[in-house]
Design a protein around this nucleic acid. Structure first.
Lengths: 213, 213, 213, 213
DNA sequence: ACCTAAGCGAGACGGTACGTCTGGTCTTTCT
DNA sequence: AGAAAGACCAGACGTACCGTCTCGCTTAGGT
């Protein structure tokens, strides 16, 4: 999450720290109950026990608020370290799918992405708060696989970065599309198939996700 | 597009056939100028030279209307038949990216997907009008590759169907994520990399997209 | 009251005639309960069983609405014809004081006058809807007194008009100032004194209001 | 102006004396620029270079503040002593009209009067700070006329007081009504006519204001 | 020379109303 | 019966002010 208080002020009553957390939690609760389009800043303010003005003082609008509220959800993703790259990928895929199964994520994510199609600042905020932030998963998974000897060390850092981008778009894109566009369950079977194709595509060597033959 | 006039009526003034096309065109024009959230049915009606009543008589609301308006855009996708599976995939990827670069598609697609997160009927409409409809591309591409001998014939039809779903989610998901979430250009370089990973993942054999070494 | 529908339209749903009356009545009720500054257009709309939009479609704002609502109150003033100019004047003074004792008039009148200090259009509306409209009382009273022989017929119409203006400002001004600024009761005693001074000032001849010696 | 610091405290930092004057001046400036309804305490505070807190520490609200700011304006009224009662009356009328032509008076006076319609305390404050305070003009003018022999000495002090009230309401009422309600210029002509009627009404004897035939 | 109580500026806070806009519906007249 | 026009109810929008509060700092008189 990026800072929303560009310069710390010396004078005046300081902003309530508790309000921020209450507002983000209320936003997620409202996303669950109302979805994106019915979500109202007035309603969020009421849920958070906060005045509407407080909300507008800190966020420019619904979009930025929901980005921040949703971004926090993805921070709980972890590379599981199950002993093989295949198992690690599958683990992350399933965690990702689990988050997208939660209504606050389902309802919020596509809403802000839809707005971002016309709003450069919002698009940057999404990239910074969600996309770039979660690429850590790919970086970490690769490092672990390299430590295990499953992947060779990178030569060119620029190529390496581009590969991270590609893999992230492929994994995240496939999961999001499966869950939110195709409206099909992203279950273990599907995650296994995805992992198999992906891993073979990266390494050229087939391997079963769970480490079995 | 699915029928919206379940039973043709005999009496009264018949519905203007031209109105339908004008409304869908006006919807796309409004998507270009205003984006999803600022698009207004009143505004669409004005642009189409039609009363709001007429619009509501034919579509249940903004969501359905935009689904229909956007779905038409994807019908121009073609499997190019450039001589190899790799080239065909890359061609479709680039066509898809080109469509997503058009504002009417960018702005409309994610908007309806966001709404679909809470609306089962809308989700089905999207699946029917867009997702399932465009899986023809995967089916056709595979058939062509099989005819060329690049892919073996399928054995189990259920497995074959599941593979189509997976490939479609991977391709469409990666392109959508790249274009709309990561906000990075889906240029020829990137399309080539994606194709290479995908093809290797499917066939286990490396091949350059453009047919070169 | 001046027309608010400059050009009658041919098409579309016509404006509800009942709404106008309901809104003006609701405005007066709100003036009674809330006074000028706490009166809210949203509240008036609720009382009238009407949407806020309907209200704004017909009036430019709180000021114009209250002018119309208050103007109607003064239409019930009548020159009583009690047999003498003195008695007629006193009757009108007391009627006027009685209206200003009603909260809807007290609360509304000065509010719009206060706004009119900075708003030329509003000032004109007040002049047209209230001031000029009620000068009929002075004109009528004078005509009656002339018929009785209490006043000589006018010679110069311009002088006559200026006299009407002066008398109206003196009567209305004195009553308004007594009731709303000085906050003293405008009872029969006071009305009698006012009438005596006024009449002597106009005719140069003393006369008791009630017709007595 | 009535005291706003009922009991002087001994300890602590004393209130800035300069702030009071700055605030009242800022209030008048804001009345000129913004009028009554757009006048904001926050804005007054900014203009006066003072914190909102300071303002609320000294006045209960907008109403009281404006009463104090406006009341000072009327203190500059003087009975001119031009040699005759008629000339004195006309002089005061014109002075009064001149004050009401100043925007800070126009805009402020009716605003507080409008609020006073529902606020007893405010009404008393207006009566004390403005109305009763300026009745001195009538008292002084009468005393001077009596000294000249134009008016007989009073017999009953209660009758005399009631006459002062009546004359004040008639003069102030007529001027205020002419200026703020009828929206007509209170020029020398009009002031002369008013004076003639008033004087004849009081004394029963005609006299030209300027002392001419 | 300290102490302490109040004043002061800044500005965040919970509220409330604003006037506008959109979503859907309903009611006209005309075709 | 359908269409164009536009009024209707409902309710969210983002802004502005209200009057209160919480800060850290200043300014005096009392010791």
């Amino acid at each position: 999450m990026q800072s929303r208080t560009p310069a710390p002020r010396a004078t005046g009553r300081p902003r309530s720290a508790a309000a921020d957390a209450a507002i983000l939690a209320a936003t997620r609760a409202a996303l669950v109950e109302l979805g994106w389009s019915r979500l109202t800043l007035g309603d969020v303010a009421t849920r958070a026990g906060v005045a509407k003005t407080t909300l507008y003082r800190r966020w420019a609008g619904k979009h930025e608020l929901v980005v921040d509220a949703v971004a926090e959800l993805f921070d709980e993703l972890r590379v599981p370290d199950r002993g093989s790259l295949a198992a690690d990928i599958e683990g992350v895929v399933l965690q990702f799918a689990a988050i997208l199964a939660r209504p606050e994520a389902r309802n919020g994510l596509m809403g802000v992405v839809a707005e971002a199609a016309r709003d450069d600042a919002l698009r940057e905020r999404i990239r910074g708060s969600i996309v770039e932030r979660q690429k850590r998963l790919v970086v970490e998974g690769r490092a672990r696989a390299q430590a295990r000897g499953e992947l060779p060390p990178e030569e060119d850092p620029r190529t390496a970065a581009r590969t991270v981008d590609l893999i992230f778009d492929m994994v995240a894109g496939a999961v999001v599309h499966r869950c939110l566009v195709s409206s099909q369950p992203a279950d273990a079977d599907w995650a296994g198939s995805l992992t198999r194709v992906l891993l073979l595509g990266i390494t050229g060597a087939a391997q079963n996700p769970a480490g079995s033959v």
